[in-house]
Every structure is written in structure tokens, then in C-alpha cells.
Design a protein around this nucleic acid. Structure first.
Length: 427
RNA sequence: GGAGAGAUAUCGAAGUGGUCAUAACGAGGCGGUCUUGAAAACCGUUUGCCCACCCGGGCACGUGGGUUCGAAUCCCACUCUCUCCGCCA
């Protein structure tokens, strides 16, 4: 969410930004919100004046009553009543205008970073850098579910009967591998100086609307029936929500946290054939990292965050690349975002395993996360988030890249302590 | 799930319809006086948000409504915390 004052003073920047994101249908909203904001302020001014006068007269009534001057008090009451209707009307107007302003401000996209490539959709995202050699072995790599089945590691059919499409049972060494990766990722981030945290897996609606755009909310979030609670789509939601309505001392920044949670997503929309198995599912687990920092430090943390993910995948011998989100593919709250993609030797292409985002002050403004400087002045913090690792999708990359010709799957050295010392799956 | 108690500033806490609401009182923080320095003592200062160029004004006592000329105070709903009971990993 933008600052209304910024929008008022820079409508052209806001409009150009909307054009850059190919959301031209939102262009009229800019002028409309300026108009509504002016009306809201006008109503507030007049209402405030009436309130001031009411306050003053009420005090006088109090004084008169104390002196027992009942008739004079009654006369004063009449005076207040004269303006009561107008004040009531203005109060309603003030509220209505302010609500409309907020409603529109919630859908006007955040100003993207100047470095973000302009493009319409995900087809125009830009590869930034490759890490590791994307090897295509001279033997055939089976579909990931087939590799898992070879180790009796997955039961999709049973999951279908129990919970429906988009769920899975992981079994035996595959399940253990899943947990091992999460544990390894947790320790990896702790070693980087991040603080480990296990957050709530459900959050209230006010937190939901604070951390994501309406479009994301609709396509992602499961609501608990009869409660004001949603299952989190990522621990970023509860981790950023943790700071709702807080004023953090500047010297306490940055807050660097790594959190674990299951994630639940509706995944509304069409799924392609390559999304069989555990690629796109309603439930997965994720080790996440989030940062709350000073505005001038958010570019630094952005670089720091995605590099952690790259380092983690490289330590597991998985080739990755970074792909920058173009303007049209960038969610409305985000200033800049890059995906980390892992190499699939079976598909001979990279696929998304993580996403690193700088939200600027958008989440902080919605959630009122403020920072107090030494001199007492305050400003909104910047927030960032990034995937450390999210299995079981990550297992696809893991299994394909560590599969050997004899059908065994090699366990990289760093992971062995979490797998009972095994060097191979099924050993 | 049931019963009870509670929510006021950085913390503790008073106020139960007006002239004690920026909010008593106590503690803490900050600045100062005194001191070789410190402590003590004393003096001063210390919430957030909105509108306004300024002057200034408004709102907020968990949250949202209501009653009233006027609400921290009365009424309704909700949230959270604590205690006890029940249930449970």
C-alpha cells in the first residue's frame, strides 16, 4: 500500500507504475482516490470543528449544572442539538470517504524498483545468473513420483481418497529425507545468524489483508469455517504479522528470522500435465526467512536473502538459476522479486523452488510496523521474505539431480547426519 | 466447553457521568542542580494517530456499536489475559 500523501503529490509516478505493470484498468483509480481523499479531509475538518464546539459547550453545561443553573444549561443543550444532525451526517461521510480511499489504496500497486524489467507476464521474466552446471545425464530420469515409488516413498492414491487431489503421503526414507532437508535448512539459516521461530499456522483476517493483495488472498487462502481464521499459505504471513501494531527501536534492527511451517494453498487456476505428483499441491512444508529492516538496508538484505537459498541448493549439488520477476508478474505489494529455480535434468529446464521478495514499506504500512529513531521520529520499516527450501517440491529437484544410473539416489554429505549416516537412499 | 476476575501511558496503579484525562500517585527513562566523580536528594521532562503552511483543532482508556448536551465511567457485542472446573497431545 502506498502512502496517500505520496500519491497525492506524485500522481504521474503512480500512473506510470500502473502502466508498467500492465494494469491500465486501474488508471482511473488514481484521480478518483485523490478526489475521495480531498472529500474525506474536507468532511473531517468540518466535523472536527463541530466536535470542538460541542466539547466546549458540554464543558460549560457541566459548569452550569454544578452551579445549579438548570435553565441556562438547558439552553446550552439546545445549542449543541442544533449542530447534532450536521455532525452526524459529516461523521458518516467522513467514515465512508475514508473507507473508500482505503479500499482503493489497497489495490493500487506498490511502486516497483527501477531495476525491475518491464514485461507483461511470467514469459518475460529475465534470467539473471546460473549457479552450477545443468547436467543432463546419459540415462533416462523417471518422473519424480516414479523415483519415489521405487523406494515405496509415496502414496498419492490413498491421499486422494483421504483428502483429495493435491495431497500426498510420503513414506519411509522419502518422508525422512523430507524432514532431513527441513532440519538441514533450519540449521543452515541458524548458522547464517537468523533466529529460528515456529509461528502460528492460522492467522486472522486483518493479518491476511495486511500481508497480501486481494488477488493473492482469493487464490491462496483457506478459511476456517465459522471462525475468523485462515490457514497460512507461508510462514511469512504469521512472521510479518508478528510485528503488527508495533514500534521497533531502530537499534534493534534488522530482525532476521527463519521460520518453519506447513503451508496451505488453494492453488486456484489451471494446472498443467507437468504438475502431477508433488509439484503443485495444497499442503507443503517450508523453511522461510524474513527480514524487517531500515529502508536503506532492504536492497542489501534482498541480495543476502536469495544468495542463502542459492548456497543451500549448491550445498546439495543442485544446479540453480535466478530469474527476475518482470513488472507484470510482480504481485501488487512487491517492490522487487526474484525466483530461485532448480535444474530439472528430466525436463531439461529450470523450475521454481523459491521466491525472494522486497515488499518495501507496503506490508509495514498496512500492519503499522514502525521504527523509532534515536531522535524519537518514526517511519515504516521495510519487510522482505524468501524461501529457504520448500519440500516436497524441492524433493523433485533433489531426486532428479542426485539419481545415479544404477537407480540409487546419492545423499550429499551435508545431509547424511540427518539421514542416519546413509550415503544412499534405501541403503 | 462451563464459572469467575480483569484490560487505563514504558511498567505498576487511581479514577465508576462534567470543573483530576495527557490522565492522580509510585517506579523507570531522559535533561538539569548539587558533587572531585557517583549515589542520594531536589527541579524539570517523558503516548500514539488524523487534519492544518502556520495558528490551532480532533480522535484514542482492549475493539466495535449504543445511551447522553457530555462516557474510562452506563448498556450491548466481540477480542485477549488470569484463576478454577471439564476435555485433551
Amino acid at each position: 500500500m502506498l502512502d496517500i500523501k505520496f500519491l497525492r503529490e506524485n500522481p504521474e509516478i503512480v500512473k506510470q507504475n500502473i502502466k508498467n505493470k500492465f494494469q491500465d484498468e486501474k488508471l482511473p483509480l488514481v484521480d478518483k482516490v485523490i478526489e475521495l481523499d480531498a472529500s474525506a479531509r474536507k468532511a473531517q475538518q468540518e466535523a472536527d470543528n463541530l466536535r470542538a464546539s460541542r466539547k466546549k459547550i458540554s464543558k460549560e453545561i457541566g459548569a452550569l449544572m454544578a452551579q445549579g443553573k438548570k435553565e441556562e444549561a438547558e439552553a446550552k443543550k439546545e445549542e449543541v442539538n442544533k449542530n447534532a444532525a450536521r455532525l452526524e451526517e459529516l461523521s458518516i461521510q467522513e467514515k465512508e470517504f475514508q473507507e473508500k480511499v482505503k479500499e482503493i489504496m489497497m489495490v493500487i500497486p506498490n511502486i516497483i524498483d527501477p531495476s525491475v524489467p518491464i514485461g507483461k507476464d511470467d514469459s518475460e521474466n529475465v534470467e539473471i545468473e546460473k549457479f552450477g552446471e545443468p547436467v543432463v545425464p546419459n540415462f533416462e530420469i523417471p518422473y519424480h513420483t516414479a523415483i519415489m515409488e521405487k523406494f515405496n516413498g509415496i502414496d498419492i492414491d490413498a491421499a486422494g481418497k483421504v483428502a483429495g487431489n493435491g495431497f500426498y503421503y510420503l513414506i519411509g526414507d522419502i518422508a525422512r529425507l523430507h524432514s532431513a532437508i527441513i532440519s538441514y535448512a533450519r540449521d543452515f539459516m541458524i548458522d547464517k545468524g537468523f533466529t529460528y521461530c515456529i509461528p502460528p499456522f492460522m492467522i486472522r483476517s486483518n493479518v491476511v489483508t495486511g500481508v497480501m493483495s486481494f488477488a493473492e488472498m482469493d487464490s491462496m487462502m483457506y478459511k476456517i469455517e465459522g471462525e475468523d481464521l485462515y490457514l497460512i499459505g507461508t510462514s511469512e504471513h504469521s512472521m510479518i504479522g508478528k510485528f503488527i501494531d508495533t514500534i521497533v527501536e531502530e537499534k534493534e534492527l534488522p530482525k532476521t528470522l527463519t521460520s518453519y511451517s506447513p503451508c496451505f494453498r488453494k492453488e486456484k487456476g489451471a494446472h498443467g500435465i507437468e504438475e502431477r505428483g508433488v509439484y503443485r499441491i495444497h499442503q507443503f512444508e517450508k523453511q522461510e526467512m524474513i527480514v524487517v529492516c531500515k529502508p536503506e538496508e532492504s536492497p542489501f538484505w534482498f541480495e543476502n536473502l536469495w544468495k542463502n537459498t542459492v548456497a543451500l541448493f549448491r550445498s546439495l549439488d543442485i544446479p540453480v538459476r535466478t530469474l527476475e520477476c518482470c513488472s507484470g508478474d510482480l504481485a501488487d505489494l512487491k517492490v522487487k522479486s526474484i525466483d530461485v529455480e532448480a535444474w530439472s535434468p528430466r525436463q531439461k529446464k529450470y523450475f521454481e523452488v523459491g521466491s525472494c521478495s522486497n515488499l518495501g514499506d507496503a506490508q509495514a504500512r498496512r500492519l503499522q510496523i514502525r521504527v523509532r529513531k534515536e531522535d524519537g521520529s518514526k517511519y515504516f520499516a521495510h519487510t522482505l521474505n524468501n524461501t529457504v527450501v520448500a519440500p516436497p517440491r524441492m524433493l523433485i529437484a533433489f531426486l532428479e539431480n542426485n539419481l545415479m544410473e544404477d537407480g540409487n539416489v546419492r545423499i550429499p554429505e551435508v545431509l547424511r547426519p540427518y539421514m542416519g549416516g546413509k550415503e544412499f537412499l534405501g541403503q
